[in-house]
Each structure stands twice: as structure tokens, then as C-alpha cells.
């Protein structure tokens, strides 16, 4: 199996606190990998290290076999590692359409064009509507992002990530804080990308049914350490995981 992303002894310390502790993982290409763990286990920090928002204290990261540890977030996005943010991170005073169009413009590599009007690029507009349609947000295209409800902002996050068309998609709790009836639509979008089988998806989630359903592989973080990895079935049966994290929680969800 080919690995698209690899980390080696990846560690980050904030003062005395070790948020991610010697994590060595290989993310298989074009597969669906989930990362689970209780709150504060270092999942989002791990994502921040992968996408370049933070740089590690120790250890290294490889993308397609090349080391990218020192590369900036900008460079990593251009290489093909896109991410969505758990804490919504959009352009508040721009419309939903403009938010997505900025991502499309970057993907289309129109960066320093100063002489043409942006409306000249009709295809960006069309593509943006298309993507917004997928995440069921097209009717809000002309709304300012700051006026969106929380769940809608989450959808916008996903739309912007989709617009980047990166090979790797890092999804940080895409459905967190969403109204329950909105979750299936987002699940459907994610499932569709998975079904195309040409992207690598890494997902952080708490919803176990979603993880069981979608994942090819599950990584379990606990206090910043990788304590287990395997297929969803293996993880559920893993005793270390059960005692550390799932415990009664998974049973509760089943009941």
C-alpha cells in the first residue's frame, strides 16, 4: 500500500505540556482514515502540524516521500494538503460566494492577475455555485459569511475545502455543532468523495457511527500518543482503546 502522508516521531510541546507525543503514522493513499480520541487528546493539534499551522518541536512529516516539515501552510496547500477548520475560519465580511470563489481562484492558479475584472472569470462563479449546491448552501450564496448560522458556516468550511480540490482532505469535525437534520447531507458529501476513490481523506470525528461507517482505518490518540490503529472493527474490540476512551461511551451510543 502506498502512503501519501507519513509522520515520524512527531512531537509538539507547549511549555511543559506535550500535546502530541512521538506520533508515527502512515496515512494510506486514497483511503479513508479517521482519528478519534477524547477531548484534549491532541487531534486538532496533530492536524495543525500536518497542515503547517504549527511547526513541531521534534519529528518530521513526509508527503509523497518528500519531507515537508519546514514548509509553510501556503506551500502545503499548493502541494495538495487541504484542510477544514473545527473552529470556523472564513472571511466574515465577504459573501458566501466570494469565500468559495477565493478558494477556486487559488486552485485555478489565478494569483497575481491585476488587470482583468474578477467577473471576467465566469467559470469560477459557476463552479462556486456548483460546490455550494453540493453542500446545500447555494441559496445563501449572497449572504455575508458573518450572517450565517453556525451549521451553515460549517458547510461553508467544507465547500471551501472542496473548492481547493486537494489530493488530501483533512476534515476537522465537519459536523460539529450542526443541527441533527443537517448532518446526513454533509455525510452524503463526504461519502460521495470517498466513493470516487481518488482522494485521501483524514477525518476527526466524535460520532462513532459515522467513523464505523466510513473509515478504512482508525487511529486512536490519547494524551497526545497514538495508542492504537486498525480497522474500525479491530478498534472497537481493542481493549486498550476501550479502557482509555470508548469505555462505556460506545455502549451508551448503541443503546
Amino acid at each position: 500500500m502506498a502512503f501519501i502522508l507519513e509522520t515520524k516521531d512527531l512531537t509538539i510541546r507547549f511549555g511543559g505540556h506535550t500535546a502530541v507525543d512521538k506520533v508515527t503514522v502512515q496515512i494510506p493513499e486514497k483511503k479513508f482514515t479517521s482519528i478519534i480520541g477524547p477531548n484534549g487528546a491532541g487531534k486538532t493539534t496533530f492536524f495543525n502540524l500536518l497542515s503547517g499551522q504549527l511547526s513541531p518541536t521534534e519529528g518530521s512529516i513526509f508527503y509523497k516521500g518528500n519531507e515537508i516539515t519546514k514548509k509553510s501552510a501556503t506551500e502545503r496547500t499548493r502541494l495538495g494538503i487541504g484542510r477544514s477548520f473545527q473552529i470556523t475560519n472564513v472571511f466574515p465580511n465577504l459573501t458566501v460566494l466570494e469565500n468559495v470563489r477565493l478558494a477556486i481562484q487559488s486552485q485555478a492558479n489565478v494569483r497575481y492577475q491585476m488587470l482583468k475584472h474578477f467577473l471576467h472569470y465566469k467559470r469560477f462563479e459557476e463552479k462556486a455555485h456548483n460546490i455550494l449546491d453540493q453542500v446545500l448552501l447555494d441559496e445563501k450564496a449572497d449572504t455575508l459569511a458573518s450572517n450565517l448560522a453556525h451549521g451553515e458556516k460549517r458547510k461553508l468550511e467544507i465547500a471551501m475545502l472542496l473548492a481547493l480540490e486537494t489530493e488530501v482532505l483533512l476534515l476537522d469535525e465537519p459536523t460539529a455543532g450542526m443541527a441533527l437534520e443537517e448532518v446526513p447531507a454533509i455525510m452524503e458529501v463526504i461519502r460521495k468523495i470517498k466513493a470516487e476513490e481518488d482522494r485521501t481523506i483524514v477525518l476527526i470525528e466524535h460520532k462513532m457511527d459515522m467513523i464505523m461507517d466510513l473509515s478504512d482505518e482508525v487511529l486512536v490518540l490519547f494524551h497526545g500518543e497514538l495508542i492504537a490503529k486498525g480497522t474500525p472493527e479491530e478498534i472497537v474490540e481493542n481493549e486498550t482503546v476501550q479502557s482509555a476512551y470508548l469505555g462505556g461511551m460506545y455502549d451508551e451510543q448503541l443503546a
Partner: peptide, 19 residues
């Protein structure tokens, strides 16, 4: 222009523009 839109994006959210 597309360039100008990125300037506005930087004003709105520099880190997001980077990512």
C-alpha cells in the same frame, strides 16, 4: 481584479488566506 480580491481576503482573515 482577482489580485484585489485576495487583498481583501488578507484584510479579512490573513491566516485563512494563507491556508
Amino acid at each position: 481584479s482577482p489580485f484585489g480580491r485576495v487583498l481583501v481576503a488578507i484584510r479579512e482573515n490573513e491566516h485563512r488566506t494563507e491556508s
